[in-house]
């Protein structure tokens, strides 16, 4: 399913002091948010008397609940927050942190039960107080939430169905955790400690309102109209959209946007795709999308005049801020889409740097945008290397996959002066990045972006 999520696959421009500064700042803000309940516990004398394990369990419970609440912030797509890392890293952080957070949350009841088995009685909803049952159900829902996300494909769960399930389970789990904390009232019953938890709960509700209501409403007020749908080789389609009554999207080449098509922005049926056009004064954008799934297989049936909505732009993949003497683009299949955006932009800018594009596909007849790349090669100092697995009889180009030997043949001799952008399926990105490193391309000079999240 990488096609749906990875066309956005991209990477980050060269790290600068500014980017690092912002990255550290936002990480600090995150830690402050998650650790705030613990700092509060430390700052004031607490009831005490429960013993070390009881207090450890309690602290882990508070921190786990705060982590789960802040998980909502990570996927709210705040551009300033995600920009220093690239939104892909933030989504992956959200994913790994969910596992860490659930382990911390689980430790809360396990430590209590091990320290004193009498706490097992709280598992019985007929005996336990409502807020204890709320805590138990919250933990069960969190486990379910993580399991469903990690096993989505094995469970055969459709992406849209998973998203809706994920949102409902997450809201219920965190809501019940807050009810549990409030109901127990230990450490939070007095004055400003209660105020802090009220503030955390209110902020969490605020994020939900922003993501589920305010943002969709904003998208609804900034519609786009489909002006063309054209077929590309390899079961791909180029969708051209123009803004309806607003300025449209200002993006940098290589970025992506979430597309809402034939659905309401409130319905959570959106899919990320790389923009394949260069920035336009009209604010319009083009997406080149391969037919590979339930949603993408309907792109060819879209008619000019249909309304759609875009949430974006996002992503830090591209050449913004790059001063490399030479650029190399490596694309797998529909991973050519963001490369097309960058190359079209460079052509418009009259860029004369030596450029190499290595584009790998299954067969020559199914290479998307190959005519466009041929045209761009005439306008730029661009050398295009097509790599096909299933070569025609008269084929004299590269055959197979993009491996270290192939890269060694086509990379410029000065590997330290080149910047490489990679976009394609996850296994390809992994193997190409390793090969580039072994061939002497500094790690900071090779860029990719992850979007195969669930």
């Amino acid at each position: 399913m990488w096609f749906r999520l990875i066309p956005a696959a991209m990477s980050s421009p060269p790290a600068t002091a500014w980017i690092w500064g912002r990255a550290i700042l936002w990480l600090g803000v995150y830690l402050a948010l998650v650790l705030a309940p613990l700092f509060v516990l430390l700052a004031e004398s607490a009831p005490g008397g429960g013993g070390f394990w009881y207090d450890l369990s309690l602290a882990l419970g508070f921190a786990g609940a705060a982590m789960m609440a802040v998980q909502f912030v990570l996927t709210a797509r705040f551009k300033r927050m995600t920009a220093p890392y690239g939104i892909d890293i933030v989504y992956y952080f959200h994913r790994y942190l969910a596992v860490v957070g659930v382990l911390i949350v689980l430790a809360h009841p396990i430590i209590l039960v091990v320290a004193d088995p009498v706490y097992l009685t709280y598992l019985d909803p007929t005996e336990a107080a409502w807020h204890m049952t709320a805590g138990v159900v919250s933990v069960v829902l969190l486990l379910l939430l993580v399991a469903v996300s990690l096993l989505r494909r094995r469970l055969g769960l459709h992406y849209d169905e998973w998203r809706a399930t994920h949102a409902v389970l997450a809201i219920l789990a965190v809501g019940l955790a807050f009810a549990h904390i409030d109901g127990v009232g230990y450490y939070v019953s007095s004055g400003w400690k209660r105020g802090l938890w009220m503030l955390i709960a209110a902020s969490w509700i605020g994020i939900i309102v922003y993501v589920r209501l305010a943002k969709p409403l904003l998208l609804l007020r900034h519609p786009y109209r489909v002006v063309a749908v054209t077929a590309e080789r390899g079961d791909a389609w180029t969708l051209v959209v123009e803004p309806e009554g607003h300025a449209g999207m200002r993006f940098t080449p290589g970025q992506f946007a979430w597309l809402v098509l034939r659905s309401s922005p409130f319905a959570m049926r959106e899919h990320p795709f790389s923009i394949s056009s260069a920035p336009r004064t009209s604010g319009g954008v083009e997406f080149t999308i391969k037919e590979l799934g339930d949603f993408t297989s309907t792109i060819g049936t879209v008619q000019p005049g249909e309304i759609c909505y875009l949430d974006g732009p996002y992503g830090s993949f591209g050449i913004a801020g790059s001063h490399a003497a030479e650029l190399v683009f490596i694309a797998g299949g529909i991973g050519i889409a963001p490369m097309a955006s960058i190359l079209r932009f460079l052509a418009e800018q009259g860029d004369r740097r030596p450029l190499t594009l290595i584009h790998a596909c299954g067969s020559w007849s199914r290479v998307p945008m190959r005519d466009e790349m041929t045209c761009l090669a005439e306008r730029l100092a661009l050398r295009v290397v097509w790599v096909v697995e299933d070569a025609p009889p008269d084929w004299r180009g590269e055959v197979g996959r993009v491996d270290q030997a192939l890269l060694d043949r086509h990379l410029p001799s000065d590997r330290t002066a080149v910047e490489v952008l990679v976009c394609g399926p996850m296994p390809m990105i992994d193997s190409v990045e390793h090969a580039l490193y072994r061939l002497g391309v500094p790690m900071g000079n090779s860029h990719s972006e992850l979007f195969d999240l669930v």
Binding site: L31, V34, L38, A46, G48, D55, I89, F93, L97, V100
Partner: peptide
């Protein structure tokens, strides 16, 4: 490589939280 960055950040965050929780419990009972 970018996935490793996210993994490292997540694990480091978890360790920081657990360390602070242990510190809290120890201070409460010392």
């Amino acid at each position: 490589m970018r996935r490793w960055l996210a993994r490292i950040l997540a694990v480091a965050t978890g360790i920081a939280i657990i360390a602070l929780a242990v510190l809290f419990a120890w201070l409460q009972n010392s």
